[in-house]
Amino acid sequence: MEVRTIKVFTTVDNINLHTQVVDMSMTYGQQFGPTYLDGADVTKIKPHNSHEGKTFYVLPNDDTLRVEAFEYYHTTDPSFLGRYMSALNHTKKWKYPQVNGLTSIKWADNNCYLATALLTLQQIELKFNPPALQDAYYRARAGEAANFCALILAYCNKTVGELGDVRETMSYLFQHANLDSCKRVLNVVCKTCGQQQTTLKGVEAVMYMGTLSYEQFKKGVQIPCTCGKQATKYLVQQESPFVMMSAPPAQYELKHGTFTCASEYTGNYQCGHYKHITSKETLYCIDGALLTKSSEYKGPITDVFYKENSYTTTIK
C-alpha cells in the first residue's frame, strides 16, 4: 500500500517557510505537534488534498525554529505562539472599519479597549522592536488589523473576551517599542525636605499616572512627601515624541487643539466601556464603527496623549 502524501510549508514567522512532505494517514499533531492554519487549530486533523502548498504555523520545537521565533517575536515564552494563534482565530472574524481616516474595530468580545489602543497607536510616533509587531502594525494602518490585535493580546497575556485596560495595554506595548531616546527629568520640591531631581528613561519617561493635564504637570502637581507634608512635583525636561497622561476616570474637559487623542471610560472596574476622542479640525468621538463630532467635550476621561518633541522648564 502506497503512502499518500502532500507537500506543505511549516513556519513560526510566515517569513521562513520549511518544506514538509506530510503523510495523509496521520494527523498534523502526530507529525508536527500543535499546528495552526489561519489561526485555526488543526492539530487533530489529517492532511487533505486542499492543504497542498498551504502554510501551517507550528510551535518552535527545534533550534532553527526557536531562533526564527525569537528573532521575529522577541520572546522565548513557549506558550506565546499558541496564544497568538488562538487569538487570531477570533480577531480574523472582527470587522476593521476605516473611521475618520483611522483603522478602528467594530465592537465584539469586549474589544473596546483594543480599538482605543489601536486608534491611539496610529496617532503617536512609535516604532516597535519585534519585527512581528512592526509588520502587523503597518498592515493594521492599511486596514488589516487582525494579526496586530492578536499579537497585542498575546504580548499582554490576554484572551479574547476578557476586559482590558488601555493604560495597561499601552504599557505592555511600550515595553516592546523603541523608547531608548526618551528621557524625563522631574523635580520634587518640599518646604521641609528641599528639592530632589529624578531622571527617568524609556517607558517611565512617557507615562504618568495622577493627572490628565500635561500643562498642569509642567506647572506642578501636589504629591505627598515622605515627611508627610505636601510637596510639588513638576516637569523639568521632556525628550520624547509623545507623552501619555493618565488618571482614574473623572469628568474632564478636553479643549480642541490642546491634545492629540484621549480615552474615555464609562462604567466601573468590573464592567465598563471605552471610547476614543481625537482632536482634528474639530473633536471626534470614535466608538467602534461609530463616529460623532463636537466642538467641545466633557466626560469621564482616563488617558490623554500629547505630541511632544523637546521641553525644558522655565521655572527657576
Rank of each mutant, 00 (worst) to 15 (best):
E2N: 14
R4L: 13
I6R: 11
T11A: 09
T11C: 05
V12A: 10
N16F: 08
T19P: 13
Q20H: 15
V21L: 14
V21G: 11
V21F: 14
S25P: 05
M26F: 09
G29T: 08
Q30D: 13
Q31L: 14
F32M: 15
F32V: 11
G33C: 07
G33L: 09
P34R: 14
P34F: 13
T35N: 10
D38V: 11
G39K: 05
D41I: 10
T43G: 14
I45C: 15
K46I: 10
H48C: 11
G53W: 12
T55F: 08
T55Q: 11
T55P: 07
F56A: 05
Y57I: 12
Y57M: 13
Y57K: 03
P60A: 13
P60H: 07
N61F: 14
D63G: 05
D63S: 15
T64M: 06
T64Q: 14
L65E: 08
L65F: 08
R66C: 14
F70N: 02
F70S: 11
Y73T: 02
H74Q: 08
H74N: 06
T75K: 09
T75N: 11
T76Q: 10
S79N: 14
L81Y: 10
G82N: 14
R83M: 06
M85F: 00
S86M: 14
H90R: 13
K92L: 08
W94A: 09
W94Q: 05
K95R: 10
Q98C: 10
G101H: 02
G101P: 03
T103Y: 08
T103E: 05
S104P: 06
W107S: 11
W107A: 04
A108N: 06
A108L: 06
C112H: 09
T116P: 03
T116C: 15
A117S: 09
A117R: 00
L118S: 03
T120K: 08
Q123Y: 05
Q123C: 02
L126P: 04
F128L: 02
N129A: 09
P131W: 09
A136T: 08
Y138M: 15
R139T: 11
R141M: 10
E144A: 11
A146C: 10
A146Y: 05
F148H: 08
F148C: 07
F148G: 04
L151V: 04
A154N: 04
Y155V: 06
Y155I: 00
C156S: 09
N157M: 06
V160R: 01
G161N: 08
G161D: 04
E162Q: 12
E162N: 00
L163H: 09
E168L: 09
E168T: 09
L173Y: 06
F174N: 07
F174R: 09
Q175A: 03
Q175S: 13
A177N: 01
A177V: 11
L179T: 03
L179E: 01
C182M: 05
K183S: 10
K183L: 10
R184M: 01
R184K: 03
V185F: 05
L186H: 03
N187R: 14
N187Y: 04
N187D: 07
K191C: 10
T192S: 14
T192I: 10
C193E: 01
G194E: 11
Q196K: 14
T199H: 11
G202M: 01
E204P: 09
V206E: 07
G210R: 09
S213C: 06
E215Q: 00
Q216C: 07
Q216E: 14
K218H: 00
K219A: 13
Q222E: 11
I223G: 14
I223L: 04
C227V: 01
G228Y: 01
G228N: 04
Q230A: 09
T232Q: 07
Y234T: 08
F242I: 01
A247M: 03
P248T: 02
P248S: 05
P248Y: 00
P249E: 00
P249V: 05
Y252L: 07
L254H: 00
L254T: 06
K255A: 04
H256C: 15
G257I: 04
T258K: 08
T260N: 06
C261M: 01
A262F: 00
A262L: 05
A262G: 04
A262R: 02
S263E: 09
S263M: 02
E264I: 11
N268T: 15
N268G: 09
Y269C: 02
Q270Y: 08
C271R: 14
H276A: 04
H276P: 01
I277D: 05
S279D: 14
G288S: 02
G288F: 07
G288Q: 03
T292W: 10
T292R: 05
S295R: 10
S295H: 14
E296L: 09
K298N: 15
P300S: 10
I301M: 01
V304N: 00
V304R: 02
V304P: 03
K307V: 09
S310A: 06
S310M: 13
Y311P: 11
T312P: 07
